[in-house]
Design a protein around this nucleic acid. Structure first.
Length: 568
RNA sequence: GCGCCCGUAGCUCAGCCGGAUAGAGCAACGGAUUUCUAAUCCGUCGGUCGGGUGUUCGAGUCACCCCGGGCGCGCCA
């Protein structure tokens, strides 16, 4: 169904045409309730373009603006804004329509795309840590939103399963491995042998050489080393799955770096042949001499020792995603430090003739109280496992305290929903580029822009329906009398306007912010308007508002990868 | 040296293509509750948007220059 914004934008376009004016400006939600529900700055934009008086232009537009079916007469205010106030009956009718719309007002994308989303990408033989939260949670949310909008999404986990660290790991496996420890906690043991090998290599050049030889053997396809590598990968994948299950993350494919091994030689050959790459100081490089900021930053695609690096792999990955997966668009979600690298990769792809839409979606870091990268007291990365466990543990304590009547089994399930939701929401509710300070107290607070606050709004609604003890029958018509009712209904109608905008600049925080405001409007409504005790037709109407709020909170949080409990 | 990101209230953060008197939350203070989950709501206090110059009817937003913080820059990924 069409949103108010889309409708009014259309009407504005028609008015401009009728007034013999060029298309300009936009219809946006009003910045202040005093200005009605929507506003347009079209007259201001045109005034600049045409060098005419803005208020006169606004009047000219208003004269042709045929919105009387939905709005009160438009008003001109300030420098030349046109303010539009929806009639309450219009909002009521639109809201009633939402009840019958599975998409809750969100239109499918006009031109669905096949989108490969590369996110998460942990490294094998290392534990996942807090740093993985952002890419994983952000990529997952974008994937969910893109799917909901009707795109064909392929979620790809580009696992770091091939690198020079395997020389150390294999050396350690052969010389330092404790099988029992490996059984108990595979990743911890892999880390231990890696560190052990690294320490020895630092102290002893013979060990360093031995590690290097193990790597060369692996790369040459040595059976024993390959088997060790295979096992390491399998152990790591199992570990990742544990985290993904808790986080409710799912991938369609997991093409690790090793998947591209047998394509790397071809990539280098092709780039040399086409002249895009050249040999410099023994290495094969791509130069960008015509791009000033990249002129002194070549991209090495084959080292002077003949080895390939991650640039080579990423070029092969581009090939695969475009040629094999038939992607229209590729989104790569990683931390900001990799910007230069992907700038180069995309530039090479462009020069090779690829015309897909490549997006590097970067994000900031998670900081500790000291405003530095979040670490443990001993300076280690904070294990993701520990973070998730603590989130659930802390949520459990709060549930125990606030709702001791809840049965034991339910309490643990609720604690997981709240704890994991809090961690995800803390991340997604902020602009992705901002570094944020990790704080349990803030994310688990029931006040303010947090997951528990939103979940609580949902729970309160469910509580109403449990108490009502009747099946929900959507009201045919809504009556919006109290300002809190009108305000809530208006917000409900905006869900369809907000969701698509998230993908404009990959900002799930826009959706989070909307949901927070929705919950806020609901709570205000809840305080002011009794539901079950009210008489008809208000009762049915209010139940409908409750139901819709619940549906949108549920769906909106789901788009962020966050679940809702029925009780908490 | 070159490049990227960030700097908004005491704290944590919003503010997409430049648009009306810069917004939330937390903290502080003052109210509302024998409740449909007060796990909430309402109000008050709080800002030279790091600094400067420029572009224009209009700049937190755009351009340039500084300051401060983070990160990246040929053979790690």
């Amino acid at each position: 169904m069409e949103t108010f914004q889309a409708l009014l934008t259309q009407k504005l376009a028609e008015a401009l045409t009728a007034a013999d004016l060029p298309q300009a400006g936009a219809v946006t939600p009003a910045t202040d309730a005093r200005f009605g529900d929507y506003q347009t700055n079209a007259a201001l934009v045109l005034a600049k373009q045409l060098g005419q008086d803005p208020r006169a232009l606004a009047q000219k537009i208003v004269d042709h603006l045929a919105v009387s079916e939905w709005c009160d007469p438009p008003t001109i205010a300030g420098a030349g804004f046109i303010n539009l106030t929806l009639r309450t009956a219009t909002i009521a009718a639109q809201t009633a329509g939402l009840l019958r719309d599975e998409g809750l007002g969100v239109e499918k994308a006009a031109t669905p795309k096949r989108i490969v989303i590369d996110f998460g990408s942990p490294n094998v033989a290392k534990p996942m840590h807090v740093g993985h939260i952002r890419s994983t949670v952000l990529g997952d949310a974008l994937a969910r939103i893109a799917s909901f909008l009707g795109h064909d999404v392929i979620r790809d986990n580009h696992i770091g399963d091939w690198g020079t660290q395997f020389g150390m790991v294999i050396y350690g496996w052969k010389n330092l491995l404790d099988r029992a420890a490996l059984e108990r906690d595979p990743i911890a043991e892999l880390v231990r042998i890696y560190k052990g090998a690294n320490d020895r290599a630092t102290a002893d050049s013979a060990v360093r050489e031995a590690c290097r030889e193990e790597l060369v053997k692996l790369q040459a396809g040595d059976a024993e080393n390959f088997a060790i590598w295979t096992e390491c990968v399998a152990l790591s994948l199992r570990e990742f799955e544990v985290a993904y299950k808790i986080l409710d993350i799912h991938y369609d494919i997991q093409r690790g770096e090793s998947f591209y091994n047998d394509r790397l030689a071809g990539v280098v050959e092709r780039l040399l042949k086409s002249g895009l790459a050249e040999i410099s100081e023994g290495a094969v490089c791509v130069f960008f001499r015509d791009i000033p900021e990249l002129a002194d930053k070549p991209c090495i695609i084959r080292k002077s020792d003949g080895g390939y690096n991650y640039a080579t792999t990423d070029i092969a990955t581009v090939d695969y995603r475009i040629n094999d997966l038939k992607a229209d668009t590729v989104w790569i979600v990683t931390g900001a430090p990799q910007q230069l690298h992907f700038r180069q990769i995309f530039e090479i792809a462009w020069r090779e003739g690829y015309r897909a839409d490549f997006r590097h979606i970067t994000h900031g870091s998670i900081l500790g109280d000291d405003r530095k990268l979040m670490k443990t007291r001993s300076g280690e990365n904070v294990a993701l496992r520990d973070v998730l466990e603590e989130a659930i543990g802390r949520a459990r304590k709060i549930v125990d305290e606030k709702n001791p009547d809840l049965p034991e089994a339910e309490r643990q399930a609720v604690a997981k929903i709240i704890g994991i939701g809090a961690v995800k929401y803390a991340d997604l509710s902020q602009y992705r580029m901002t570094d944020y300070i990790f704080s349990w107290d803030r994310m688990l607070s029931f006040q303010g822009n947090t997951a528990p606050y939103l979940q609580n709004a949902y729970v309160r609604i469910r509580s109403i329906f449990r108490k009502a003890g009747e099946e929900f029958v959507p009201a045919k018509e809504l009556v919006l009398v109290a300002p809190e009712e009108r305000n809530l209904a208006t917000r409900l109608c905006q869900f369809g306007e907000i969701v698509p905008t998230v993908l404009n600049d990959f900002r799930p925080n826009v959706l989070a912010n909307y949901l927070f405001e929705l919950a806020n409007s609901f709570h205000a409504f809840y305080e002011a308007c009794p539901v079950l005790k009210s008489t008809e037709p208000a009762r049915s109407s209010r139940l409908a508002l409750c139901e819709l709020t619940a549906r949108i909170l549920h769906r909106g949080l789901d788009l962020l990868g966050i679940a809702v409990p029925e009780k908490m």
